[in-house]
């Protein structure tokens, strides 16, 4: 058995806090630990920020749909948008030896998504662009 939740909002930066609160409430009701919940919020936030700032660039902001699917061994976070498609890729790790002066302080969004999630999938369909983020749980969600 899995349970599913959905929330739809406009693709604007105000939506980030609304979606994080939605994930928080869903995790709390299911007794999911705070570190796992934080990872889910962070990956969602980075992905949605990219869609809001780049995916809908030059277009009227459309909808952003957040789907959560809780299964016994994993949580699946799906973000659907209707902007320009953007296939995610896993970036290189930051250079730990470089000093602050030599480092680029940006570009961590995708890196954080891949670091916190176990699986990242992307689909472009007639029903929008879908980013599917899977986080494994190392325990069973209580029934």
């Amino acid at each position: 058995m899995s349970d599913k939740l959905r929330i739809t909002r406009a693709a604007q930066l105000e939506t980030l806090a609304v979606f994080r609160d939605f994930i928080d409430a869903a995790c709390q009701r299911r007794g999911i630990d705070s570190a796992t919940c934080y990872d889910l919020k962070l990956a969602m936030d980075e992905a949605c920020t990219n869609v809001i700032t780049h995916g809908y660039a030059g277009m009227n902001p459309g909808s952003l749909i957040l789907d959560l699917e809780f299964a016994p061994q994993q949580v699946v976070v799906t973000i659907t948008d209707f902007g320009h498609p953007f296939e995610p890729y896993e970036p290189d790790a930051p250079d730990a030896r470089a000093g602050l002066e030599d480092r680029d302080t940006g570009g961590f969004g995708l890196f954080f998504i891949y670091k916190t999630m176990d699986h990242v999938d992307y689909q472009t369909t007639e029903e929008g662009n879908r980013l599917i983020l899977t986080k494994k749980l190392n325990w069973t969600v209580p029934a």
């Binding site: 980030l16 994080r20 919020k41 936030d45 980075e46 002066e101 302080t105 954080f112």
Partner: peptide, 19 residues
């Protein structure tokens, strides 16, 4: 309670500037 990479970037840029 929470920061994304956007908050991290703000703190890092301020640190660079302060140094």
């Amino acid at each position: 309670e929470y920061t994304s990479s956007a908050g991290l970037r703000a703190l890092l840029n301020a640190t660079k500037e302060a140094r």
